[in-house]
Design a protein around this nucleic acid. Structure first.
Length: 846
RNA sequence: GCCGGGGUGGUGAAAUCGGUAACCACAGGGGACUUAAAAUCCCCCGGGCGAAAGCCCUUGCGGGUUCGAGUCCCGCCCCCGGCACCA
């Protein structure tokens, strides 16, 4: 009897069941099991970066939410594969290693060991036999293989691109490391440098990446973020021929032009395509405003700037370009600063008006979007308007709305309406045409002369994967003077990252690997001549862009992906993770999968059938972070309360997709609940279930089953608590039949206590293998009577108990008998009665 | 500025095909058990008026639709996250 009444000791049973799972292979698959699984369900969560600090509550929240989903699917009978791994390469690890004066090769293994310990302790259903570590040669061998597949397919190319450079730290910085134009570590103004880098041509896939978003079952917030990031916009590319003169005055003007012997205006139809180098191409979403383009603006880096610049302007232009180049990307792109720019002295001809219009350069035009040049339409674009006002350039109205006409002035400040819809004015034969029609018509009109075409543009940029850093997989390329860049043959992979003691980045922008001559000297795989290895390493996002493909094949070292197993287990059934990766990781993963699909290595193009974004844990009003000092270290909490309680608490905080507010005292609720579950099961009596409790049980089964499937964890926990309150109401001791199914439902959240109680109830084996998911019986859940709300003129005047499904007559009879209702009914004549069966009865009295 | 997500008791939050606002829990108050404490159990707990029955008010603000609005529509305000001179 004493044994029956023993108390709940979380740490004891958690240790017991974690060992049981390991010893029995409960959570891991053998190769044979992977091949023979009948009902595969691939449950994925975002693998962590193994920091020195260990797992934080944010990680545990995410993993627990994903694990609850996996365990639920397992309880429903699926064969659930739930792998985990470590994303251990990258600048973060490298910087930390530099800071503490250690080598990442020494640091990472102990971090991984610590993470592994923590992950086991929270009771995740992880398949440790298929864990991956991106820094292990057995993994990055295949990361390099992925690079080579793209290289061979012509989707990896080397080209020059600007990067952020901190002259104090002597290193390249990621955009995220530049804060307000300053280096996040030393507050030094960041410069731009141009360095040759490897790019993946993700822009070739922009349209497919966009289109497929309609087909996949993802959190709306995530697909929206991807749509924005891809940034498709429709418009036209229009060419403006250069005016072959260096003598036109800086701001144009007919008389000056005439003096120089160059027509300031010609018949528009005579403006036609001449050779490429003598035209400026622009991208615009508003070709309908072409008649209003009164000047051109090029990005300072635009290749035609030299050719356009007149001798008089050369010094000014050079000074401006130098200044623009020295400024960092972030502060240059600030929207709130006053516009700057200088005229090149050159002119080009507006193909609609035939006018010669001046060409300026300004840093508000970005080289890496569109063509790096714009036609400025100050009358209908706020930025161009600001620029024209600043420099006294002409402004012309070409769109009129409402009661405006061609002569309605466009006075500063420009109203927002000017960039909206309307009909054309001051646009010759197109006057009176609505905007949308004019977009086509004007584009066609200039297209006839070879000066334009409808075009789609994307904000998405090619993916720069080069890092002039140490801690990453070497890019598997050999540079040969004769053959150019040559891929390392597959049988020579991996190109191992050598142990370099001095891996600190230097001011020359040359990668640390370039200091190890014995490493980079090699021979060309093609011609055998002396050659040099690529010394850049690849971006961490390449490591994480394909890890989910590797997991099921992780145990094979002679192939990246086992065809049979990949076909069986992929694509991933459910991916749960943070929305901070909505665009980078999740977009890259889709891109790489699409490419590998096209190349025949996988037979699908979307990696994640379903993706759900979880929310963030908030504490004291803000996101948990070290700098805010509001971080919760999980280990002491697990120590004190146990993993089950901690898991249950995290899932109970708030809606999983919204996150929640972490309060230290809040854990008492779930702790007490589990403790009552324990007591209830240990003292449960062997008798039939009470019909009222049984009814509540089936209502709970219905709710929990539906809500668990939809990741509505907080409300399904509330439902189970409510049920237990009913089962224990008035201090009654529940029957065994009343608590057994509760234990199964609870198992997804609190696996250890559920295993222990399941065993206590006399069952053999893991609850996750042995227990059937409770079956919902609608007949048993049905209520005999319902409380019907009775309103008079929409105000609640009483509730009456009626049989479930009672008709209006029955309901009214009960309602009128209610004294308070009757009183209000006497106040006037009943005009109308609204009866919503089983919900309410509303009398409209006047 | 643009794109998301929010705004409900002292607190975390429930309830959105329009139908009893505040389930579940935390904190707080009271009580039982105890020599005492812890643990556990029971009761109360949006605001106001009232002895009670009951009445009035209440879901960021202002309008509207409706028998009926936290939920739908129009116009605003505020908070959080992301993007930001993208032509």
């Amino acid at each position: 009897m004493d044994e029956e009444k023993r108390s709940w000791k979380p740490s004891e049973i958690e240790r017991k069941w974690q060992s049981y799972w390991d010893d029995h292979g409960t959570n891991s698959f053998t190769d044979e099991e992977l091949r023979s699984a009948e009902d595969p369900y691939y449950n994925l969560m975002m693998f962590p970066y193994p920091s020195a600090e260990g797992l934080h509550v944010g990680n545990i929240y995410a993993f627990t939410g994903a694990d609850v989903h996996g365990r639920y699917q397992r309880l429903r009978g699926r064969d659930v594969f739930e792998p985990i791994g470590f994303d251990a390469f990258g600048i973060h690890s490298e910087n930390f290693a530099l800071k503490v004066g250690k080598h990442p090769m020494d640091l990472i293994p102990s971090n991984i060991e610590n993470f592994t310990r923590q992950l086991r302790r929270i009771g995740g259903m992880f398949d440790w036999d298929h864990a991956v570590d991106t820094t292990h040669p057995s993994y990055y061998k295949w990361t390099q293989w992925v690079f080579l597949k793209l290289f061979d397919a012509g989707l990896a190319e080397r080209k020059e691109a600007p990067v952020n450079w901190c002259p104090s730290c002597m290193t390249v910085l990621a955009n995220e490391q530049v804060v307000g134009g300053l280096c996040e570590r030393c507050d030094t103004p960041v410069e731009q440098r141009r360095i040759a880098q490897w790019f993946f041509r993700i822009t070739d896939y922009a349209q497919r990446l966009l289109d497929n978003l309609d087909e996949i079952d993802w959190s709306e917030t995530t697909t929206k973020a991807q749509r924005n990031w891809i940034g498709r916009s429709e418009g036209a590319e229009i060419a403006f021929p250069l005016v072959p003169s260096e003598k036109l005055p800086i701001h144009g003007g007919e008389s000056a032009a005439a003096d120089a012997g160059v027509p300031a205006k010609t018949d528009p139809e005579s403006v036609t395509a001449i050779d490429e180098s003598r035209m400026i191409r622009v991208f615009t979403t508003r070709p309908d405003t072409l008649f209003g383009a009164t000047f051109m603006v090029l990005a300072p880096e635009h290749p035609l700037v030299d050719a356009l610049t007149t001798d008089e302007q050369r010094a000014t232009v050079e000074a401006y370009r130098t200044k623009a180049a020295a400024s960092d990307l972030v502060s240059r792109q600030k929207t709130d600063k006053t516009k700057t720019g200088v005229p090149t002295g050159g002119y080009c001809r507006n193909p609609a008006t035939g006018e010669a219009i001046p060409v300026w350069i300004a840093d508000y035009v970005l080289m890496d979007y569109g063509t790096g040049a714009i036609m400025a339409v100050p009358g209908h674009d706020e930025r161009d308007f600001e620029f024209a006002t600043e420099f006294g350039l002409p402004i012309r109205r070409v769109i009129a709305t409402g009661d405006e006409d061609a002569d309605t002035p466009l006075d500063p400040p420009l109203e927002k309406a000017a960039s909206g819809d309307g009909t054309l004015v001051n646009s010759a034969q197109f006057d009176g045409m609505p905007k949308d029609e004019a977009i086509r018509a004007i584009t066609e009109w200039v297209a006839e002369r070879g000066l334009g075409e409808l075009r789609v543009n994307y904000r998405l940029h090619d993916w720069c994967i080069s890092r002039q850093r140490y801690w990453g997989p070497p890019i598997p390329i050999v540079h040969c003077d004769a053959c150019g860049p040559v891929g390392v043959p597959e049988d020579e992979l991996p190109v191992e990252l050598p142990r370099v003691e001095d891996f600190k980045p230097l001011d020359d922008g040359v990668s640390p690997l370039a200091r190890d001559e014995s490493w980079y000297r090699t021979s060309c795989p093609k011609c055998g001549a002396d050659a040099r290895r690529e010394t850049d390493v690849s971006d961490t996002f390449l490591d994480s862009g394909w890890y989910f493909l590797r997991y099921p094949s992780a145990r094979f070292d002679n192939r990246a992906l086992d065809a049979e197993i990949t076909e069986k287990w992929l694509p991933v059934d459910a991916y749960i993770g943070g929305n901070e990766h909505a665009v980078l990781h999740l977009l890259y993963a889709r891109f790489l999968t699409m490419v590998l699909g096209d190349l025949g290595h996988v037979d699908f193009e979307e990696p994640f059938t379903k993706f759900r974004a979880h929310g963030l844990i908030i504490r004291n009003g803000s996101k948990m972070s070290k700098s805010r000092g509001n971080v919760i270290v999980p280990d002491p909490i697990i120590e004190e309360f146990g993993a089950d309680t901690f898991r249950l608490y995290l899932m109970f905080l708030g809606p999983f997709d919204e996150g929640g507010d972490y309060r230290d005292e809040g854990i008492e609720g779930p702790r007490g609940f589990l403790s009552r579950v324990w007591d209830s099961v240990l003292s449960a009596e062997d008798r039939d279930a009470d019909p009222d409790v049984e009814r509540k049980l089936h209502q709970t089964i219905e709710q929990v089953t539906a809500q668990l499937a939809d990741l509505q964890y907080n409300t399904s926990i509330a439902a189970m608590m409510e049920y237990l309150n009913v089962a224990r109401a008035g201090g009654r001791t529940p029957a065994r039949a009343e608590v057994e199914r509760l234990v199964v439902m609870l198992a997804a959240f609190a696996p250890h206590i559920a295993e222990e109680l399941w065993e206590h109830l006399g069952h053999e084996g893991s609850i996750f293998d042995a227990a059937p998911w409770p079956e919902f019986d609608p007949a048993k859940a049905k209520e005999d009577t319902v409380d019907l709300a009775v309103q008079v003129n929409g105000k609640l005047r009483g509730t009456v108990q009626v049989p479930a499904g009672a008709d209006q007559e029955t309901a009214e009879q009960a309602a009128r008998a209610e004294e308070n209702v009757a009183r209000y009914l006497e106040e006037g004549e009943i005009r109308r009665v609204i009866h919503v069966p089983d919900r309410l009865l509303n009398y409209v009295v006047a």
